[in-house]
Design a protein around this nucleic acid. Sequence first.
DNA 1: CTGAAAGCGCTAACAC
DNA 2: GTGTTAGCGCTTTCAG
Lengths: 332, 332
Amino acid sequence: MAKITIKDVARRAGVQPSTVSRAIHNHPDIKPATRARILQTIEELGFIPDRAAQSFRTGKNHSVSVMLPSPGNDFYIRLINAIDEVLEQHDYDAAVFPMLSQRRLARYQNPQALPYQTDGLMLVSLDPEQLYDDLHTLQGLPTVVLEVHSRHFDSVTLNNPLGGKLAAQHLQERPAETFVMCYAPEPQAAGVPSSGVFEERLQGFLQFFEKVGTPVPLDHQVRVNFDWPKVQEAARTVLSRRQAEPFNVFAVCDLFAHALLEEIREQGLTLGEDVRLVGYDLEPHPSGTASVHQAAEEMGRRATEMLMERILQPDLPIRHVQVDPVLKVGRS
Amino acid sequence: MAKITIKDVARRAGVQPSTVSRAIHNHPDIKPATRARILQTIEELGFIPDRAAQSFRTGKNHSVSVMLPSPGNDFYIRLINAIDEVLEQHDYDAAVFPMLSQRRLARYQNPQALPYQTDGLMLVSLDPEQLYDDLHTLQGLPTVVLEVHSRHFDSVTLNNPLGGKLAAQHLQERPAETFVMCYAPEPQAAGVPSSGVFEERLQGFLQFFEKVGTPVPLDHQVRVNFDWPKVQEAARTVLSRRQAEPFNVFAVCDLFAHALLEEIREQGLTLGEDVRLVGYDLEPHPSGTASVHQAAEEMGRRATEMLMERILQPDLPIRHVQVDPVLKVGRS
DNA sequence: CTGAAAGCGCTAACAC
DNA sequence: GTGTTAGCGCTTTCAG
C-alpha cells in the first residue's frame, strides 16, 4: 500500500510522467483521447497529486492567509464568504488566522510562521505598522490590507466619512434634536484594530451638520468605550438628555446601536416615530431604523482580486481602493 | 538577489549542505563550534529554509488544521489558545477553518482541500459522520474529534451529563421550585454542531432530581431553539410560571442564561436571593450565580497531545478521553 | 502531440 | 563529527 505517484499512473496508462502532468493541468497540447485515458487511470488508482511536491516544484501552493482580530461577528463572516467566493474562481483556498492572543501576536512576528507559508496575505482590520516590529517579516509576500490604509501595501478601505455623512443626511431630512453615540479611544491594545474608523464616521457626521449650519452640540455627543455596562449607561444618558420626541440618534457601531435599541424598547418608545435611529451595519435590521451598510462583500471581492493580481505580478505599483457604503432604510 | 539556499550557506561557511541542515535542526552529532559558525553565516546571509522543500522532503509541515463551526465565542477562543500553547511546545502551528458557509462545507469534501494539507486535523463540535459524505475524505490523516464522540477517530468529549448533575446538586442543596431552560432541536442544519450536548446536560440534570425523588415537572422544562426573540420569550415564560421566591433555574447554555439574566434584572429580582441561576460557561460570571465550567483549556490540551502522539505513531489504537466540568459558584 | 531528462532545496543513510 | 550521495514527486524545458 505504498504511495501512488505520477509514475505509477504513467506506467499504467502507457505514457510518460510529463504527459500525466499535462493531463492533470488541462494543458492544451494534449490529445483529448490521451487525456481521457489518463484521467481514467487516475480514477482507477485513486491517485492524488502530492501538493507538497507541487508547491516545492512550482513555488505556489494555491492558498492565502487571512489574518484578522477575532472572527465571529457578522461583518467578518460576510467578508470571509466573499473572499472564499473569489478565491474559488482562482482555484485558491483561504486559511484564517484570528489574532486571539498575545502569544499569536508574538509568534507571527517570525517570517517562518505558518501564515506566511502561503502565496498571499490579507490583513483585515490590522495595521501592519502596529502589528509588526519589523515590516521585513513579510519578506515581499504579496499582501493586501483591508479596512486600514497603508503606504506599503495594496489596500481596500471603507469610506467611513461618507458613512457618517449618509447618516447625517438621513437625519437632517427629519429635523429634530440630534444625538450621536461615539467611540472614546482607550490606551491602545497592541496590534488590535485601529479605532480610527469610528472617528472617521463621527467626523463625516459632524461635518455635514456643521456645513448645513446646525452643528451638533458637544453634550449631544456621548462618548464611550466598548465596556458593555458603560455602553448601556451611555445609551441611557442619550435618552435622558432629550427634550422631547421625536429625536434622532446616530450610533457609530452596532454595539452602541444594540444598547440604544434595548433602552428604547424598555422605555416603550416607538422606533421611527419617537426616535429615529441610524446605526452601522445593523443585523438584523429592525424596521424603523436606518443603517449604513458596509460593503463587506465588495471589500472582500476587491481585495481578493487585487491579491490575485499581485501574486501573478508582484511588481505592480501599489494600489488603493475605497469602497462606499450605502444607507439602508428599514421599512416602517 | 536570487534565493539564498542551504548551498550558499554551506559554501560560505566552508562546510557541506548536510552539515548546515544538522546545524539548523540541533542535531546532536555536530561540534558546537561548527554549529555556531554556521548559524552566524545564516544570520549574515539572511537565509530562511524553504519550508516547501522541507515538507516535500520530510512529509511533514509542522502544522495542523482546526475545523470548527464558527469561532468568536468565548469557549472556542479559550480552546484555540490552549491548542496553540501545546502546539508551540511541539514546534507546530495551527490554521483555523471556520465552517461559515455551505460553500466551505462542499469545498472541504475534497481530500485535496487546504485543511487536509497539514500533518493533522482537529474537528471541533463537528461530527465527522455528518460532515463528510465519505469518511474517506480524510485519507488516514491523523485526526482527533472534540466535543463529539466518534468510533473512527480519537476523541475528547466533555462529560455533559455530569455537568447537568453538578447543576442539579447545587440547586438541590437550596430547595425551591426548580426550572430548566433547555434546547429544542430543530431540523438539523447540515454538518453543524450536534445538539446532543444540550440534551446530555438536561438528562444529567433531570436524572439527578428523579433519583432523589423530586422529579422536575414537565411544565417546568421550557424548551426553545436559538432564535433570540424566542429565547427572550422563553425566559419570560420561566419567570412567569414561578409561584414565589426564591426559585431555581438551570440554563443549559450561555445564550439562555443571558436571556434569563436580562429578564431577572428587568423584573428587579436579586440574583442569589430571589433566584438561583446555574448556567453553563457563564462569562463574565455574575455574582449570585453558579456556572458549570467547561474545561475548554483541558480539552484543548488533551486533544492536542493526542494528535501529536498520533502524528508520531499513526497506528496507535483509537483513544477516547472525557473531561469533567466543575461547578464554579460566584461569590455573593 | 508526446518523450526524455534535468532539477527545484533539502534531508538522511552511509561512508570515512 | 563531517562529507558524499541519492532521491523525495513533480513540472518544464527541449527534442523529436
